[in-house]
């Protein structure tokens, strides 16, 4: 969706502000919010792509002013609300309704380390041959889906070159919307900085993106 999360190439956000000796969490609640969204019980079929899509549905004005973990809180609330696992009333009161039944299948502390090292990944074997080969010129399609996609606006309509092929991977555009894995071949595509940003860009520089086959056409 064409909203504020698609930040690549924008101006006006000011200087980068690195911190010395930064801790992973600046305040205790950040770790708790992060942990909730990692180890809570998810509805069946929930995917990382749905997670990213939900973050994108945060109102643009709030997206820009909320911290990362505040956005995670929003995502956690949305996941649970849209699955009917909590109600708006329960969320408002911070208390379970009297009709609610307690589950006993949430992730236990002793399972967390294995969860963090679980090898479930997005690679999917594909029978059909890849359409493109390394070294081939391609163009990123001019597509403007209202749902989730991983083709940033700054690359749409631009030409580049396939530099590597990574086999089949779950397609986020489908997986974010309950349409299954729908795997496609995934490629790394090199775009010259001048192709993306015009003549003022450095002639030697380039930007690489990982793009699914349906994002690309022969150039």
């Amino acid at each position: 969706m064409n909203t504020i999360h698609d930040l690549g190439g924008m101006h006006g956000f000011g200087a980068i502000a690195p911190e010395r000796d930064e801790s992973p969490f600046h305040e205790t609640w950040e770790g708790r919010a992060g942990g909730i969204l990692e180890v809570m019980t998810f509805p069946p079929g929930f995917t990382v792509d749905r997670f990213r899509y939900l973050r994108e549905t945060l109102r643009p004005d709030l997206y820009l002013v909320q911290s990362y973990y505040e956005q995670w809180l929003y995502i956690a609330e949305q996941v649970l609300l849209e699955a009917g696992m909590i109600s708006a009333e329960e969320l408002a009161r911070g208390k379970a309704s009297p009709q609610s039944t307690k589950r006993n299948d949430s992730m236990r502390a002793d399972a967390v380390w294995d969860f963090l090292h679980d090898r479930a990944h997005s690679g999917r074997p594909l029978a059909q041959a890849p359409r493109f080969t390394s070294g081939q010129r391609v163009r990123a399609r001019n597509m403007q889906p209202a749902g989730h996609t991983r083709l940033p606006r700054y690359a749409r309509g631009r030409s580049g070159m396939i530099v590597s092929h990574h086999g089949g991977h779950v397609l986020p555009d489908a997986s974010a919307h309950g349409k299954g894995d729908a795997p496609q071949h995934l490629y790394t595509v090199r775009f010259a900085a001048r192709e993306l940003w015009g003549a003022a860009a450095h002639p030697r520089d380039s930007v690489h993106l990982d793009l699914w086959e349906s994002y690309l056409e022969p150039a």
Partner: peptide, 22 residues
């Protein structure tokens, strides 16, 4: 965050000890 953790704990949707471990 506190309200959400408390609600989810009450409903058995999260274990606070698992958050600690994370």
């Amino acid at each position: 965050t506190k309200a959400l953790e408390s609600l989810l704990t009450e409903k058995g949707l999260v274990d606070p000890a698992a958050i600690d471990a994370w």
